[in-house]
Nucleic acid binder design. Structure first.
Lengths: 141, 141
DNA sequence: TTGTACTGTAATCATATCAGTTACAGTTGA
DNA sequence: TCAACTGTAACTGATATGATTACAGTACAA
C-alpha cells in the first residue's frame, strides 16, 4: 500500500481534530512526522479532489471543506493509491502457445481487480470521523 | 502486491494443468516468463508449505502434492505475500504530545489489518482449480 | 560408478521506487 | 511591501525488485 494514502488520511483527521479545521503544511508535517513538501504534494491532490481548500499568504494553510462524517477512506484510496493491490509485474505472455501461459495475465488481472473492489468496499465503510473517533478512544485507554 | 504470489499461483496452476503434474524449473520459468532461479526460489517456499515435492536428478522437477481443488489462494498469499496491504511507512509518532499524532499508527494499523483479513477471506474462496477453470474458459472465447 | 540433469542458494548488477531535502517562483493577506 | 504561505521541480540516498550467473549438492540412468 502506498504511504501517501496514510498521509492523506492522517492529514484529514488532523484537520478535523483542530477547532478551526485549518493548518499550514508545516504543522501537518510535524504531526504526520514527515516534511512539509511531501504534505503539500499530498494536499494538492486532496485539493483537486475537493476535500480541502487552500489559503496562501500569512495565516493561511489547508482547510477542511467537507464534513468529516461524509468523507470515507474509499474516496481517499481512489484518489491517492488506486491499484495498490494489483502487482506491477505480470506473469505469462498472451502470445504464448500454452493455454496457461497465454491466459494467466487476463485471469489474474480479473482476480486482482475484484480484490481491489473488495478493499474499496471495506474502506467505504470507514469515515474520517470514524478514524478520529477511534483515536479518541485510544486516549481513554 | 508481491509478484511472487502471482508466480506461485501461476506455477501451481501450470503443474495442475500438466497430465503428470510435474515439471522442472526451466519449463515453469518459460511458462511464467521469468528465469529458472526465480522459480526455484518460489518453489522452495511452496515445498516448505507442503504444496509441492521435488525430485532432483535427471527427469526430476517439481510435482504437485495436493489436490488443486483444495488449495486456495489465501494459503498461497499467506505463504508468499502476507502483509502486502500494510504500508511499510508509518505516519505519526507514539511519543508525540498530540492525541492524533501519537495514536494514528495504532489506529491505521488496525484498519490495515482488517483490510488484510478481508483480502484473505476473498482469496480463500478461490482455488487453484478455479483459476485453471477460468483459464480454460478463456480458451473457448 | 560415472555423468547428466536437476534443485537450492547466494552473489552481483541494473533499474525503479520511495522518502527526505532544498530551492524557488507565485500568491495573498496584514 | 513584506512575510508567510502554497505549488512544484530537481536532486540525493536508501531500499526494493527482477535478471543473471555461478556453483555446490543430489539423484537417477546408463
Amino acid at each position: 500500500m502506498n504511504s501517501e494514502f496514510t498521509i492523506a488520511v492522517h492529514s484529514l483527521v488532523y484537520l478535523a481534530y483542530l477547532p478551526e479545521r485549518m493548518a499550514p503544511s508545516e504543522a501537518i508535517a510535524e504531526n504526520v512526522s514527515t516534511n512539509p513538501a511531501r504534505i503539500r504534494k499530498v494536499m494538492s491532490c486532496l485539493k483537486r479532489g475537493g476535500y480541502v481548500d487552500t489559503r496562501e499568504g500569512a495565516g493561511g494553510g489547508y482547510r477542511l471543506t467537507l464534513d468529516p462524517a461524509i468523507v470515507n477512506l474509499a474516496d481517499i484510496y481512489r484518489l491517492m493509491a488506486q491499484g495498490s493491490v494489483i502487482p506491477s509485474w505480470c506473469s505469462g505472455n498472451p502470445d504464448m502457445d500454452c493455454v496457461v501461459g497465454s491466459n494467466m495475465q487476463e485471469v489474474m488481472d480479473g482476480i486482482f481487480c475484484k480484490a481491489e473492489k473488495q478493499l474499496e468496499a471495506y474502506f467505504s465503510g470507514i469515515t474520517i470521523s470514524d478514524v478520529l473517533g477511534q483515536i479518541k478512544e485510544c486516549k481513554e485507554c
